[in-house]
Amino acid sequence: MADWSPAAYLRYTDERSRPFGELVARVGHDPASILDLGCGPGHLTPVLRGRWPAASFVGLDASPAMIERARATDPGGRYELADVRDHAAGRGPVREADLVISNATLQWVPGHRELLPALAATARQTFAFSVPGNHDAPSHLLLRGVAAREPYAAAVGPVERRVVGDPADYLEILAGTGWEVDAWETTYTHLLGGEDPVLRWISATGAQPVLHALDAHDAGHGTGLRARFDAELGAALRDAYPSRPYGTPLAFRRVFVVATRRG
């Protein structure tokens, strides 16, 4: 997949940041060191520093563009290019920290549930993460449905349904390996503004693999599939998420886990 766009991702900063603040609020220890897996453009680092100003911090992300943006925004911080799977295997630039935390990243990691015990083992005190649980919401059903039609299907191929666990799934995985686990879910109703806000929302995150494939096809074949796809998906999303005089409501489910070492 092509690299991420920090500017597009940050378009709805407040809405994307709120779950992280609620995750941080449920961490019961005061860590001396923090490792953020999938730190993105560094926009959530102030949340961690605000809660634990004395802690050392390292942010990891697999996107060069995100790491570049984080370093530019926070030149005094430490941000490293690294993959979550490498960290789980002990090959990352930082082996462990008191708090290992991740926001909206693990759903992109193939087989992330199988990696959870290894990821948790790198936390000396607490392992905390949140993942979006909206992959069967109308936004993603329509994304997969439109992408499965021709002429898009030939350019895109099968669109993966990125499955995350329910709170009980994650509790069983981590409690079964000895952690004390707090797991829950929340459905936010975000009020989005502007033209085609739901299309812009998913275009910065969940739709990225599809859009990158269409862009690559257009560049290689001189076609205009991306523009056609945006128009078709945008129309479907407007029907599924009708605009109101006060904005466009978007229901968004999130799953949260805070695992703490016993004793």
Rank of each mutant, 00 (worst) to 15 (best):
G176F: 13
R85F: 07
W184P: 13
T126C: 03
E96Q: 12
V258C: 09
I173R: 02
D196K: 11
D230M: 05
P75H: 13
A97Q: 03
W179G: 00
F129P: 00
H87R: 04
Q125I: 03
Y188N: 12
P209G: 13
Y170N: 12
R200V: 08
P245R: 10
Y79A: 06
W108A: 09
L116K: 02
F256A: 11
P245A: 06
D182E: 15
R261G: 12
L141E: 15
R113T: 14
T186A: 04
E185W: 00
R253M: 09
A104K: 04
L99T: 02
E22I: 02
S5N: 07
T189N: 10
D136W: 07
G28I: 10
M66C: 08
R95Q: 11
W179Q: 04
L211Q: 07
A88Y: 03
R226W: 11
D14G: 09
R26M: 14
G111L: 12
L35P: 00
T187K: 12
R262T: 12
D182C: 13
R254Q: 15
T189E: 15
A2M: 11
F57C: 05
A148S: 13
P6G: 01
P117N: 05
P132E: 02
F252I: 14
G21F: 03
D136G: 08
H43L: 11
S17N: 08
I202E: 03
A72E: 13
H217T: 06
L233Y: 02
T187I: 10
Y188C: 12
P138V: 12
A54P: 10
P249T: 00
A240Y: 06
A65S: 12
A32Q: 12
C39E: 04
E195K: 04
L23I: 09
E150T: 03
R51D: 00
P167V: 15
G194N: 05
T73Q: 04
S17V: 06
S243G: 09
G165H: 09
D30T: 14
A175C: 06
H140T: 11
W179H: 04
D74Y: 02
L60G: 03
T177F: 05
S102H: 06
D239H: 05
V24C: 12
L81W: 02
R124D: 11
W52P: 00
D61Q: 04
A2I: 14
G193Y: 00
L99R: 01
R244Y: 12
G165L: 13
R71E: 04
R26E: 15
S56R: 15
V181P: 07
L143N: 04
G263D: 14
L225A: 07
A207S: 10
S139Q: 14
L119G: 01
A72F: 03
V109P: 02
A89D: 05
A147Q: 05
A175S: 10
P19H: 01
L237T: 10
L81C: 08
E15R: 15
D36N: 05
V94A: 07
R161D: 06
A251L: 13
V109N: 01
H135K: 13
E114K: 14
Y241D: 05
M66G: 06
R78D: 01
